[in-house]
Design a protein around this nucleic acid. Structure first.
Lengths: 175, 175
DNA sequence: GTCTATACTTAGATAGAC
DNA sequence: GTCTATCTAAGTATAGAC
């Protein structure tokens, strides 16, 4: 990928995460790069196109994880999900902090993040889960996602913290 | 509160939650009520004013909880937080799904949701917490918030589900 | 590859009639 | 309490020069 496209993505990712996709204008992105909004349209044909380029790779990684979810033991699935969350942590707020982004993903991709989350939760809940098992699956998922995000807000994710998160998530899962 | 103001708040709360505050126009709100945008300005002096009216009560309830947090045992604090989440579940997406709302609350209220969350986490982590204890506190907080939201997405929160959530959150908290 | 200029649209908000 | 009409600002996007 050419250098300019990469720099546009980097700036857009940061601004979309901080201000939301709807709350970020092409002028905001251009201003950060000290170019005019019109120049952005040489590299991307629309604002939505910048978003798509930004999300493509993390979304594919999430889809891959969701596909393997059913085959993995809960501990391994939670570990894989924590690692995914750590790798994707700069884009996750882009998706979660703007309903317009979620809507776009729902209509544009066959498997949206929402559906992938459902697959992971189902795998954690096990076969024929009752309501309590589903709650525990949601709980473990929440721990893996939010505790990882909390750590990454202040530093990189090292082994001791990762182990603590996984142990906590497993306790939440297992009655 | 007059009937019309109440109906404006109800519609605004639903649309802000579904489309985000930034992604919802006064025309959207007015259209749902079959009036013109101009009519809204007789009841509220600005769009931000509608938001403030909507959040005032839940925010006060959260502040009250945050104040009592240090005095409560972890199990009682988690129970209180689950119950708060259940009561406020229609407005929580309004705050979480739009960075513009969070920014506004940060500058407009002395104690923003972020600071209140920190107070709750600190109480759950106990005195002089190490990194592991902070992670477990974040984990328990995440369970209480997300598992409650998951249940409320499909039905009301009844005792068995509430008990399951609290048990899971406590396991996440306690090594 | 970036600029200036501009077309087009939508949004927040106000004035004044009814 | 709601309407029509309107102002202003901002946003996405394009055309064409450099």
């Amino acid at each position: 990928m050419p250098d300019t496209k990469q720099r546009i993505q980097d700036v857009a990712r940061e601004l979309f995460a901080r201000q939301g996709y709807t709350g970020t204008s092409m002028a905001d992105i251009a201003g950060r790069l000290s170019i005019t909004p019109a120049a952005l349209y040489y590299h991307y044909k629309s604002k939505a196109d910048v978003l798509d380029a930004l999300l493509a790779e993390p979304l594919a990684a999430y889809a891959e994880l969701a596909t393997r979810a059913a085959e993995l033991a809960p501990a391994d699935l939670l570990a894989a999900f924590v690692d995914f969350t750590a790798r994707a942590h700069t884009v996750i707020p882009v998706v979660t902090s703007d309903p317009a982004v979620r809507d776009r993903l729902d209509e544009r991709f066959p498997s949206s993040p929402k559906e992938m989350m459902v697959a992971v939760i189902a795998a954690l809940a096990g076969p024929d889960p009752d309501r309590a098992a589903l709650i525990r699956a949601h709980a473990a998922f929440a721990v893996a996602k939010e505790a990882t995000a909390a750590v990454l807000a202040t530093r990189t994710l090292e082994s001791p913290d990762r182990d603590e998160i996984l142990a906590s998530a497993l306790r939440a899962l297992t009655a």
